[in-house]
Amino acid sequence: MRKFVLTALMAAVAMPAIAVPASAQSQREVRESRQDLREERREMRQAQRYGDGRDVRRERRDVRQARQEVREDVRDRNRVYGRNDWRAYRNTNRNLYARGNWNAPFRYNQFRAGARIAPAFYGQRYWINDPWRYRLPQVRGNQRWVRHYNDVVLVDYRRGIVIDTIRGFYF
């Protein structure tokens, strides 16, 4: 029984390390699509050298489709999300937003836009390093998305001013 419990604990600890963030997956898709496009171009050159007209037309069509796939993957990777685009994504990816009972070393505060907060609330260890993963809007300049209990707060970290707050972001 003890071995079973230890194995289960090791598996539970290893699972978050195995999970790949959405942005890395998207970047991988772009890389694979570009590799497919290079392969299709290589096949088209071979068809132009050694094949007949039908082979060349088929390969040109394949190259066009590969180019279109690269464009779509790049567009998906670079998509800019609006303020509420995360809601539908959260409903289909609940495990990504279920981050357990997360507590900071300070008490919970409801921050409002325009409020000035202390650096302890938006320290680097609370930053969300990959907001694209959660479909949060992109930030500008000196802004960062910060987790505060189950809320997400957009903070100008130079001045300590709250720009936006999304309450109940995590489950």
Rank of each mutant, 00 (worst) to 15 (best):
L6W: 05
A11V: 15
A17N: 08
I18D: 05
I18A: 14
A19G: 09
V20T: 14
S23G: 07
A24M: 08
Q25L: 08
Q27Y: 12
E29F: 06
S33M: 02
Q35C: 08
Q35E: 14
E39M: 09
E40V: 00
E40A: 10
M44E: 10
Q46L: 14
R49C: 05
D52C: 09
D55H: 15
V56W: 02
R57S: 04
R57K: 11
R58H: 02
R61M: 08
D62I: 02
Q65L: 06
Q65M: 08
A66D: 02
R67K: 14
V70A: 04
V70D: 02
R71Q: 05
R71Y: 02
E72M: 05
E72W: 07
E72Y: 06
E72T: 06
D73R: 06
D76V: 02
D76N: 07
R79D: 02
G82C: 04
N84F: 10
D85K: 00
W86L: 01
R87L: 06
A88L: 12
N91C: 07
N95L: 11
L96P: 00
Y97C: 01
A98K: 13
G100C: 04
G100R: 03
N101S: 07
W102V: 10
W102N: 03
W102S: 00
A113W: 03
R116D: 12
A118E: 15
P119A: 10
F121V: 14
Y122E: 09
Y122K: 08
Q124K: 13
W127I: 04
I128F: 10
P131R: 10
P131I: 14
R133S: 13
L136F: 11
V139R: 10
V139I: 14
G141Q: 13
G141W: 00
N142K: 06
Q143G: 08
R147G: 03
R147Y: 08
H148V: 14
N150T: 15
D151V: 04
V152G: 00
D156K: 05
Y157I: 07
D164I: 03
I166A: 03
G168D: 06
F169G: 00
Y170Q: 03
